[in-house]
């Protein structure tokens, strides 16, 4: 058992035992050797099942939102989970006193099947939690990398190549909405795709409909994206969903920046819903 797992279990047990929190959200082991899934511990016994190691690939934060009725919730939070907490607060889905953040400086996660670093971790720019009530372990050095490398490669393509790229991408989309369900930005009560509105979004299974879904989702989340890459991790078709996100984040940085990315600050509003008297208005 690694140190982090041990400390997380100890802290979760203590928090549950003294009634500070009603539940602790973290990860537990599954059947396979490196299977880890998001797990909610409500008793000290369940807390003993928590795991915090290099195979906890899933983003645990969104699970907190469905538990708020139970009381204060503790969340084991790496950089991405902590940014998700900020995201929830900026979107007014969570108040700071509703969550107890057990910060966990992230060692970087591995793909349980291949043992390689997870794609979402290779593009990560923030491993240490941006907010926490307590921290498990020592801070880790922040990665120095160009998270827009893939985007830059993409932008080398000609318009025809890009069109073909997206056509191919959306033809493979099965519209399972896993990306939406995993996304910490997607906290609407009723998603636009689930609404019965004639003429907006059909049930047809075509690349056009998938493109409509993908594009609108990109616009709904792009200015708030915390770049956790969870959408891409959960996509059963392995679509490069972060491409459109990174494009928007980089554009916002260029137009209204400096912009560190979504969820870095505890409070909104986000650049595209903020109005400054000196904003660029060259189109006016």
């Amino acid at each position: 058992m690694n140190d982090a797992t041990q400390i997380v279990r100890e802290r979760a047990t203590a928090l549950l035992a003294d009634g500070t929190v009603a539940a602790v959200v973290g990860w537990a082991a599954g059947r396979g050797d490196h299977d880890r899934h998001v797990f909610v511990a409500r008793t000290p016994e369940e807390a003993a099942l928590l795991v915090a190691d290099q195979y906890c690939g899933a983003l645990a934060a969104k699970r907190v939102l469905s538990l708020l009725d139970e009381g204060k919730i503790a969340l084991v939070a790496r950089g991405c989970e902590s940014r998700a907490v900020n995201r929830f607060m900026a979107d007014r889905q969570l108040k700071r006193d509703q969550v107890h953040v057990i910060g966990w400086p992230c060692p970087g996660m591995l793909d349980p099947a291949t043992g390689d670093a997870l794609k979402r971790c290779t593009e990560c720019q923030r491993r240490n939690p941006v907010l926490s009530d307590e921290v498990v372990g020592d801070p880790v050095p922040e990665p120095e990398l160009d998270r827009f490398a893939e985007l830059e490669r993409f932008e080398q393509k000609t318009p025809e190549e890009r069109r073909a790229f997206f056509q191919d991408m959306y033809e493979s989309c099965i519209r399972c909405y896993a990306c939406r369900n995993a996304c910490p930005c997607c906290t609407c009560r009723v998603c636009f795709v689930d609404q019965e509105r004639v003429g907006w979004m059909g049930e047809e299974f075509t690349a056009d409909q998938a493109r409509y879904y993908g594009t609108v989702r990109a616009f709904h989340t792009g200015d708030r994206c915390i770049e956790c890459g969870e959408c891409q991790r959960v996509c059963p078709q392995h679509l490069p969903l972060m491409l459109l996100m990174h494009k928007q984040v980089r554009d916002i940085d260029g137009l209204f920046g400096p912009y560190p990315g979504g969820g870095m600050e505890p409070e909104g509003p986000d650049p595209l819903r903020t109005y400054h008297t000196d904003d660029l208005e060259e189109f006016m």
């Binding site: 979107d91 007014r92 889905q93 906290t187 609407c188 009560r189 009723v190 609404q195 909104g268 509003p269 819903r273 903020t274 109005y275």
Partner: peptide, 21 residues
């Protein structure tokens, strides 16, 4: 209100301060 999740995007963006939560 059935669709509103109270995210406050409208409150932030309203130039007239006409929206509140």
């Amino acid at each position: 209100t059935a669709k509103c999740s109270g995210c406050g995007a409208c409150v932030d963006i309203c130039p007239y301060g006409a929206l509140s939560l």
